[in-house]
Simulated scan of single mutants.
Amino acid sequence: MFEQKRLSRLKWACRRGMLELDVLLLPFVEEAFADLPYEKQETFERLLTCDDPDLFAWIMGHQKCDDPELAEMVSIVVNRVKAQG
């Protein structure tokens, strides 16, 4: 489990330069992050180190992420958004 300080930094990292990413990533952390296995939580944390244009392209399906772990995490985020409708 992530300690509170680390979780707070993660939420801050979800505040991106693109509003489109903010509205996807922050709710994911607040509502679904805690249910992920620890390894996936660490992958999500690593995902947030990526550049906004790359994140946006991956989430929108314009490009495929070459890193399999990050690609799977993008899929998890996107599928959650689709399920929320």
Results as ranks from 00 to 15, higher is better:
Glu39Tyr: 07
Asp54Trp: 07
Ser75Leu: 09
Thr43Gln: 05
Cys14His: 11
Ser8Leu: 04
Asn79Phe: 02
Asp54Phe: 05
Leu36Pro: 15
Phe2His: 12
Met73Thr: 00
Gln41Met: 07
Gly61Arg: 15
Glu3Ala: 07
Leu36Lys: 10
Cys50Asp: 07
Phe33Gly: 02
Glu69Trp: 09
Phe28Cys: 01
Val77Trp: 00
Asp35Gln: 12
Lys11Ser: 14
Pro27Phe: 09
Cys50Pro: 15
Glu30Cys: 11
Pro53Glu: 08
Asp52Thr: 03
Gly61Met: 10
Asp66Gln: 08
Leu47Gln: 01
Leu7Asn: 09
Val74Asp: 02
Leu70His: 06
Leu26Arg: 14
Trp58Asn: 01
Val74Gln: 01
Phe2Met: 12
Leu25Gln: 09
Glu69Cys: 02
Glu3Ser: 06
Ala13Ile: 02
Gln84Trp: 13
Leu7Arg: 15
Phe28Gln: 01
Gln84Asn: 08
Ala83Gln: 14
Pro53Gly: 10
Gln84Glu: 12
Lys64Phe: 00
Leu48Thr: 15
Lys64Glu: 04
Gly17Cys: 03
Lys5Ile: 04
Arg16Cys: 01
Ser75His: 11
Leu47Ala: 00
Glu45Ile: 00
Asp51Gly: 10
Asn79Met: 12
Ala13Phe: 08
Glu39Met: 04
Glu72Ala: 15
Leu36Ile: 04
Glu3Ile: 03
Cys14Leu: 03
Ala32Phe: 07
Arg9Thr: 14
Leu24His: 10
Phe44Arg: 13
Asn79Tyr: 03
Leu36Met: 10
Glu20Arg: 11
Ala57Asn: 10
Arg6Phe: 05
Pro53Asn: 13
Phe2Ser: 07
Ala83Phe: 04
